[in-house]
Each structure stands twice: as C-alpha cells, then as structure tokens.
C-alpha cells in the first residue's frame, strides 16, 4: 500500500503537442480514485506515466514517498490491469498468475500457495489449467485482476478494465471490484471514459479534459458542485441542460455573459412555492424508462431534456412549461466556462 503523488506532471509529445499539463493530484493510501474524461483527454497516458511505460516531460511522480520518475516499471511497485486484459496467450491461467512472482524469484511453494489463494478468491480455481482463449470475457478479466493482485503492489492501476465486457457483466464486475478494493485496501487508480462508472466506483473522481485536471472531488461534489461548464456537462446522464439563447428571456435573469445550466431531474411539470420560474417550449419527444420519463422540449432549435414522473396527460407538439427553483440553476462565465457562485 502506498500513497501516490503527482506534482506538476506534464507530458509533451515529440512534436510539442501537450498530452498532460501540470497534473497535480494526490491519491491517499488505500484510496480508490477514478479518472474520467472523453477519449483522447490523456487519462490512459496518465496511467502509463504512473506505471513507467511512458516517460513524463516534467514534474514528479512519487509512490510511497519515493520519487519514481526515472525508475522502470518493474521497480515502481505498481500493477496494472489493461483494457483488453493483456493476458499471456501461451500461458495457462496458473502461469499467467504466477509469472510476476516467478520473475521476481519468489520460491515455488510460496508462489503456488499465493496463486491458489488468489484463484479461490476470484473463483478461478477450476480454470487454472486453461488458456486465455478458452476463457469467457469475465474469466479473463478476473485472471487479469488476479495477476495484478498477486503481486501485492503498492498502487493498483486499472485502465478501462470493464470496457470490453458486455453490460450486465460490467455491472457485476464493478461490484466485485468495489468489494475487492474494500477487502484489499490497496491504493487504486481507475481510468474510465464512462462517467457513471467513475462516480459509482471512485471515492474521489478526477475529471480530465485536454490533458488538464478540471476538477478533483467526491462523486457527490463533482455532481452537485461542478467547477466549470465542461464538468457540469460531462458528468450526469442525461447531461445538464444549458439554457443558451432565449430560454430565460422573461425570467429576469442576466443571461448576458453568463451561461445557465440545470440538471434534467431539477425540471418539474408543476410549479410550487419555491419552483416559481419556468422555461417553455414545444414538447418534441417523450421517452419512457418505465418508472421515469424523459421529455424533450425545443425552442428556436435549442433543446432541453427533463426527467419527470410518467404523466399520461402530456401530448407531443403541445407547449410545455418546465418549472424550476432558481437556486437549482448553475451559472457559468461564458468566456472562461468557470462556475460562478451565488
């Protein structure tokens, strides 16, 4: 177990293109932090830099207090789980699990005991003699996890480990991962492009875009108090509505150099004493999710989505008012995208 510190970490490519810029982040001992961002934001590169697979241009990386900038991957006390598992195709599950200990010259009897213990923990004991090509996606994933666990690393790095699994299996593996983290208590960095995965797994979440950290906070903090327009729009599904244009023309709000946003679940079909402001538009679409409907209204080509309770009185193409409380609006500086408080 170890604390992971990134101090002003930057990475430039040979053509001076910036991949990571001034990354400052501390992952506490035993913490599970998720890193989320759109594809190409640098999140996988960040992980590879921590692992030592890619070199950083400037800054410092410390693992357990030790500066590791110049250490090769094998000396960094990290383990990594890859997106496509990266199991050794020519080795059995047993050999895949044992490889990391074998190259470190751990005694055979100890390797065997640890492999078997880990296999039992991950439900792989019946599969130890199989080759990766004979495993299902979930079994491969568990083998890749086991391979990383066996090393008992200081920091556990996971690069979109669930993205190659189908959706029901993904939910199951997400629960297993979470339980595993609780049981192992290892420092973990979990990279994903899926914001719901990031929020549900991470004790804290790092939102990355264009190689820069946008915000580091608890999942709740990220959702409720986004620091800028990007985070507000990226986290949450359906995404936050930005009330550009003339949605607010008769609300009395200053929409001059400010963008307002509101979460879809904060829009109501009925006014109340506190929800006394509204936006209005033509009802374009109703999508039923059983217990919840998503309705979409449009006005001059701009659209707003609300999550509401099912209501059979709603009719498409009718004018619909969606009510909200003014304090549920988020305000962003139009020029910088920064959140404006109060």
């Amino acid at each position: 177990m170890a604390r992971l510190e990134l101090q002003r970490v930057s990475k430039l490519l040979a053509n001076r293109q910036v991949v990571l810029q001034d990354i400052d982040c501390t992952v506490n001992d035993g913490e599970l932090i998720s890193v989320v961002g759109p594809s190409g934001c640098g999140k996988s590169t960040l992980l590879r830099c921590v692992a030592g697979l890619d070199k950083i241009t400037s800054g410092d990386i410390r693992i357990g207090g030790q500066r590791v900038n110049d250490l090769p991957p094998q000396q960094r006390n990290v383990a990594m789980v890859f997106q496509n598992h990266a199991l050794y195709p020519h080795m059995t599950v047993y050999q895949n699990l044992a490889f990391g200990l074998r190259v470190r010259r751990v005694a055979r009897a100890i390797v065997d005991a640890r492999v078997r213990r880990t296999a039992v923990r991950l439900g792989l004991e019946a599969l130890l003699g199989r080759y990766p090509r004979e495993l299902s996606g979930g079994q491969r994933q568990r083998t890749a996890l086991g391979r990383a666990m066996l090393r008992e690393p200081g920091v556990f790095l996971l690069d979109e480990p669930l993205s190659s699994l189908d959706i029901p299996l993904r939910a199951e593996m997400r629960r297993e991962l979470s339980a595993l983290h609780t049981a192992l208590g290892t420092t973990m960095v979990y990279v994903t492009h899926d914001q719901s995965e990031a929020l549900s797994l991470g004790q804290r979440v790092v939102v990355l875009a264009d190689g820069q950290i946008q915000q580091i906070d608890t999942p709740d903090g990220i959702y409720k108090e986004p620091s800028n327009r990007f985070v507000a729009g990226f986290v949450g599904w359906p995404p936050m509505n930005f009330l550009d244009g003339d949605w607010l023309e008769n609300s009395g709000l200053d929409a001059h150099c400010i963008d307002y946003g509101i979460r879809p679940e904060r829009l109501l079909l009925q006014p109340s004493s506190s929800a006394d402001a509204f936006i209005a538009g033509r009802l374009e679409r109703i999508e039923s999710f059983g217990g919840e409907w998503q309705v979409e209204i449009s006005r001059n080509g701009s659209r707003v989505i609300a999550r509401v309770a099912p209501n059979p009185e709603l009719r498409r193409d009718n004018e619909l008012r969606l009510w909200f409380r003014r304090e549920d609006l988020y305000a962003f500086d139009r020029a910088t995208g920064r959140r404006l408080q109060g």
Binding site: R48, A51, G52, L53, P72, P73, Q74, V78, A79, M80, F82, Q83, N84, A86, L87, Y88, P89, H90, F99, G100, V103, R104, R147, R151
Partner: peptide, 29 residues
C-alpha cells in the same frame, strides 16, 4: 504481438531479456 502484453510483462517485473525469452519467443514460435 499486442503491445499491452509486452507492457504487462514489464510491469510484472520482467527485464527486456526475460520478456523476450518468456513471452516474445513463445508467441513467435
């Protein structure tokens, strides 16, 4: 040879030579 498999060997602690003989050679057999 998938680059991730080679990276996995490095992170597992294998030197370049060990990676070559334990992972690359069997895959290129």
């Amino acid at each position: 040879i998938p680059a991730d498999v080679l990276d996995a060997a490095r992170i597992d602690g294998a030197s370049e030579w060990r990676t070559f003989f334990s992972v690359v050679v069997p895959l290129m057999a």
